[in-house]
Each structure stands twice: as C-alpha cells, then as structure tokens.
Nucleic acid binder design. Structure first.
Length: 477
RNA sequence: GCCGGGGUAGCUCAGUUGGUUAGAGCACCAGAUUGUGGAUCUGGGGGUCGCCGGUUCGAAGCCGGCCCCCGGUACCA
C-alpha cells in the first residue's frame, strides 16, 4: 500500500514482547535482590555522554563501535558502551560521595558491532562495583556475588573462574616478553578456550592459515618465549590451592612474584572460608579478558551447557580508570552481568519462564446489564491484592473470552451471568484443568458439557475462594 | 572486514529450458457453536517474490550493482 511506512528495526535492535519482558524483569529482580543483600546502592546515569568522556579509555578501534548522537548544539556525543566508564565519571565528578562507593546499575548500553548469537547492538548490563578500595575483601565479595547471583538465577551448571592481570604481567617477565606487547599477548591468550593450545601457540609466533583459508597473523614471539608461556598455561588443577602452589614454583625466580601470588591466594582463602569451594570458583590463570584497563584480579562466568554464548558475567579490578578524569588513581573492582546474552542463552537452553500475563484472574463480560457487577468484582479482587483483568474487548459470549484467557495463560476465569446472579453465586474456572482434559476428548459437545475445572462459590466469598484456589495452584495441589 | 550459503504470506517452505490471476502447511480472523478454551469442517484476510537497474513481447526464475539474513573467520575497549 503506497504511503505506509514499513514497520522495521535497524539491525541488532530488538523489541521485547511481554513474555520476554516478564522473564527479563524476573531476572533483573533476582539480581537486584542479591546485590542489595550485599549492600550495594543503585545509580543511574544518562544514555548519552560526551564523546571524550566515553572514548578516552578505549583504543582507536573502540571508537568505531560507539553510536554517535547529534544534538541541536552540535556537541560531540555518543551512547555509552558500558557502565564502568560512566561510573568513573561519576566518581570523579561527585567528590562528596563517601567511599568506598559500592553501587549497582542496570541499564542498556549500545555498541555498533556486528550482531551475533546473544550479541545485540542494544543490550542491558547489570553491574556491581566497589570504588575506592584496594581491599581484597572487595574482590572476594564480587566473586561471591557472582556465585550467589548465578545460583539465585537457577541458570543450571556454570563455572565462575578468576585469574589475575598482575600474575599475567609476571608471565611476561617469566617469558621475557616486553610489557609493551601485553595487549597482543593477552588478546591471543583470551582465545584459548575457543581455539585450543596449538593454535594459540602458532598465533603467538608466526600465525597460521585456518581451515577456511583465512590467514591468522601471528604476533612474532620466539619459540623459546612461547615454550615458557605454554609451561604457564599448563598450570592447571582442580583445587585453587594447588594452582597457587604450582605457579609459585614456576615463578620462583621472577621478581615481585610472591607478592602478587599472595594476593590471589588470599582471595582464594577468603572464598574457601566462606564456603565457596573449588566446585564453585576455580582459579584459571590462563584467563586474560579482552579489556585493556584491568590491573589485578579478573573474573568471568560461563554456562557449561551453552559455552558458545561466551562469558555471561565478567569483571575485574581496574585501579586506574578514574585517573583519566581526576588525575588521581582511585582503585576499583567490579563485575558486569550481560542480561540479554544470559537471557538468550537461557532461552536457548529452555530455562526461562513462560509467563505471558500478569493477571491471575480474568473477569469475563457476558451481559452488558451486569457491567456494574463485573466492575465491582474486579475491584474487590484488585483491592485484595489479586492481579485481575476485566475483559474489555468486543467479544460477546464467553467462548472468545475464555480463549483470550487461554492465550495469555491467565489461570482463573470468572463466569457471571443472569443464572449466577439469580442464585447469588459466581462460577470460577480453572483454565489448566480444561486444557489438560482437552487432550483426551474428541467430541466437541462432550468437551462443552464437561464444564471442566469449574466451581461455584457464593458471590460474597469471591475473593476468599479465588485466593484459596490461586494458593492451591501455586503450591501445586 | 574476509570466505561460503541464502532472501517467495506472520512462520516453515514449494514454485525450471522465462509464459494466464504466485501456491501449500502452520498461525491469524469469521462461521458451523448467541453461556464455555481443545479437536474437526467451511470460508476469509494477508505478497512491492529483498532493493534498484538491465535483457525480453513477457522476469519470482536470466545479467549487473546494492541491501539484509545464516554459517565460518576476524574484531570485541
């Protein structure tokens, strides 16, 4: 039809329909409860920041994935690509905030990257950070918070791992690699999970040609340097304390090694003491994380049944990010949960709730003369705290209206016509009973006559009866 | 960004040497059934055949360019 606009979205952007929003809100509520249990406080910052505020910490390539924004004043603006940089700005801008400042923030961020599985151009992150403390207790509680959050979300088998940029910097000394190459080396190490040790070794040296004929450029280390890196990568153990012992031995002759290794050992010991054993948090020193600004411990979590979605929860210590704004270094540590990536992974695994409606009761509208009764019943239930929808569509009979309740998975429907009114009762229908019964009924009249799952209650006892039935449904009776 | 595959109804797809008015299943809407959801039957709405240009009497199908999607790869602060 000419003159109409095609409804569509730019790539990487999505609508979240009600069933998706309900699952998402449930997830966010759960995460918030854990973060608040830990005593973190909420923060909100604008989606739009000055470009120099955003891009200072990132490399040149990074700027390409920033969405630019225009305003009437023609200022250089962009959409935030994470929540950490705005946090650093807030810390620098509000000197009066008591420190440590321990905040959580759930907000959308934007990256103009190529969309991929579980990867969008607009997506929400849910961050928690402690700013203004060098204490390893802060690192410990971020890791513990990650464990508790994932457990509360019921995501299935998962693994929280941590490592240390400080220890990886020791590795550079151990392998005689100049620190100027740290970004390249860590970037390649970050692929270990994905491509394996052999390809990582090749890429650290002269590169290779992969199956598709693509050339992977190497970073030019020598065989001897790579051998030493591989010895480090082979430091592996089920138990964190064994990993610590092994790396201590390997780095026996590296200057400053004992202090850095002591630091990760203390975090590990705190976790042991709190009951976060080797089954919940592992120490995997090969984890580098892509971000350049990490300075100490780094963390990440993956879902064991959906590893292709990558890290769903990641973070680390970044002791110099605020320096850019303030001139003064303020230590900080935090982690970020990828709400949308995690939701995509859980949807893939069939682990998200299937709730479609908020209403638990639908009052059907069968007789225009009884409108006042329907209104009264609706508000009685609402005032009693029962989420209730009054059918406001045009369908006359109950058939279409019950179908509506069925489509939205509203568990109870109220039927009230002149029959009920004369008898002073209401009919309350349990939708699930009929749905179950329909599987074994072939004949329609039989199906209709069954009046499945219906009970009558005195009109005066509507609220009490509905509450009792919902309670029974919730308890699976 | 690079390599490969693809784009026809809301979804999954069929549609050959280029030839009437482009189809099916599912989904949706209505009726059979005006006080009862499912199944069944009948009917209905819905298409710029990804976009632009070219070849041709004639293009969903051929040619060129572009866009987008999927898989792999690279990047991911």
């Amino acid at each position: 039809m000419p003159g109409t606009v095609e409804p569509r979205l730019s790539r990487g952007l999505r609508d979240l329909l009600p069933d998706q929003m309900l699952a998402r809100q449930a997830m966010i509520d759960t995460i918030r409860r854990v973060y608040e249990l830990y005593g973190f406080v909420p923060l909100s910052t604008p989606a739009i920041e000055f470009l120099d505020v955003l891009s200072g910490s990132a490399g040149q390539e990074a700027q390409q994935s920033i969405f630019r924004v225009s305003n009437p004043e023609n200022e250089a603006l962009g959409l935030r690509f994470d929540l950490t940089v705005p946090l650093a700005r807030v810390i620098a801008q509000y000197a009066e905030l008591p420190r440590p400042f321990r905040r959580y923030q759930v907000s959308p961020v934007w990256r103009a990257d190529k969309p991929d599985k579980g990867r969008f151009r607009e997506f929400a992150q849910f961050d928690l950070d402690s700013v203004g403390t060098v204490s390893e207790i802060a690192d410990t509680e971020i890791l513990a918070g990650m464990c508790d959050t994932l457990a509360a979300l019921n995501v299935g088998p998962h693994l929280v791992r941590f490592s240390s940029r400080a220890v990886l910097n020791l590795l550079l000394d151990f392998a005689s690699v100049p620190h100027s190459q740290c970004v390249d080396v860590f970037r390649v190490l970050d692929k270990l999970d994905k491509v394996g040790l052999d390809k990582v070794s090749l890429e650290l040296m002269d590169g290779y040609k992969d199956e598709s004929g693509d050339t992977i450029r190497g970073i030019g280390l020598t065989r001897d340097q790579v051998d030493r890196i591989v010895r480090f990568l082979n430091v592996k153990a089920e138990r964190r304390r064994d990993v610590v012992a092994q790396v201590r031995e390997l780095f026996a002759n590296v200057p400053n090694a004992p202090a850095q290794i002591d630091a990760i050992q203390r975090i590990s010991d705190h976790l042991y003491a709190l009951g976060y054993g080797d089954d919940r948090v592992s120490l995997d020193l090969s984890i580098a994380r892509g971000l350049a600004y990490y300075t100490g411990p780094v963390f990440e979590a993956i879902l064991l049944d959906a590893p292709q979605f990558g890290s769903v929860f990641g973070g680390g210590r970044y002791d110099s990010l605020v320096q850019r704004f303030l001139g003064e270094a303020i230590p900080a540590v935090g982690a970020s949960i990828g709400v949308d990536r995690l939701l995509a992974a859980l949807a893939h695994l069939g682990r998200i709730g299937k709730q479609k409606a908020t209403a638990r009761v639908l009052i059907t509208n069968m007789d225009a003369n009884l409108t006042d009764d329907y209104l009264a019943m609706t508000w009685e239930l609402r005032r009693a705290g029962v989420p209730t929808e009054l059918y406001v569509g045009t369908a006359k009979g109950p058939g279409k209206q019950l179908r509506y309740a069925d489509q939205y998975d509203i568990p109870l429907a109220i039927l009230y016509g002149t029959n009920e009114k004369q008898q002073g009762i209401v009919t309350i229908k349990d939708m699930a009973v009929g749905r179950e019964k329909a599987k074994n009924v072939g004949d329609r009249s039989e199906w209709l006559a069954a009046r499945s799952g219906q009970v009558s209650a005195p009109r005066a006892e509507l609220v009490a009866t509905v509450k009792r039935l919902l309670d029974e449904l919730d308890r699976g009776i």
